[in-house]
């Protein structure tokens, strides 16, 4: 795997594509166990990210992801803004001076991002938040020897689906407690799109 500035740009654009396409679905998920703004928040935020990164030139992947992070923090709103903002900021910091980015550096960076989300949200695994996708993905990447896009996508999907069976302990859904069981966590679904977009972008044939 090799993540260049161009691939990074393609990754961000693919995330935006997916989020715009699933905007209403994400909002429906959030309506069930939250305040129903997740799709709107994410669509607004990633639209702004695309606008921002299109208008600039980047020396390396780290710079690119930093701009994405700052845009997410100020434009997404909600809890997911500071959380995804922190995730991308940690990716950026961890990938400083690494260009192009290779597989070991990338898995370390995802580890830092997962840790960042946990700290920012004061959340642990199993509390029905996006942590339930980021932590298993960081572990998976660290244990896998090489980058396998299809496997990455499958892992992210099953981590996301597993949030359905658990009870929320953090975020808006926590107010519902066990009534949140049976519903997917919206932030985990959008985290899945982020990893799915990565897998798509880094497919060899692309």
């Amino acid at each position: 795997m090799e993540l260049t500035v161009n691939k990074g740009l393609a990754w961000l654009k693919t995330i935006n594509e997916k989020i715009q396409e699933k905007k209403d679905y994400l909002t429906d998920l959030d309506q069930a166990i939250g305040d129903g703004d997740h799709g709107i928040n994410m669509a607004r935020g990633f639209q702004e990210v695309e606008k921002k990164v299109e208008a600039n030139d980047y020396a390396d992947v780290s710079d690119l992801l930093k701009d994405a992070a700052m845009t997410l923090m100020s434009k997404v709103g909600g809890a997911s803004g500071p959380l995804f903002g922190t995730a991308f900021l940690k990716l950026s910091m961890s990938l400083k001076e690494k260009d192009p980015v290779d597989y070991p550096s990338f898995s370390t960076a995802v580890g830092a991002a997962a840790e960042g989300i946990k700290q920012r949200g004061k959340a642990g695994q199993g509390e029905k938040t996006m942590v339930d996708v980021w932590v298993p993905m960081a572990e998976y990447l660290q244990n896998a020897q090489e980058f396998k896009p299809d496997e990455l996508e499958t892992k992210a999907k099953s981590a996301m689906e597993a949030t359905k069976e658990i009870s929320a302990k953090r975020g808006r859904a926590a107010y519902l407690g066990d009534r949140s069981i049976g519903h997917l966590d919206p932030g985990s679904v959008s985290s899945y799109y982020i990893f799915a977009a990565l897998a798509e972008t880094l497919q060899e044939r692309k």
Binding site: D35, M73, G77, G78, A79, G81, P82, L83, G85, T86, R120, G121, G171, R172
Partner: peptide, 11 residues
């Protein structure tokens, strides 16, 4: 107040 308000305040 609620939800993300504190997280955003901390940031």
């Amino acid at each position: 107040d609620i939800g993300s308000a504190k997280m955003n305040a901390e940031m």
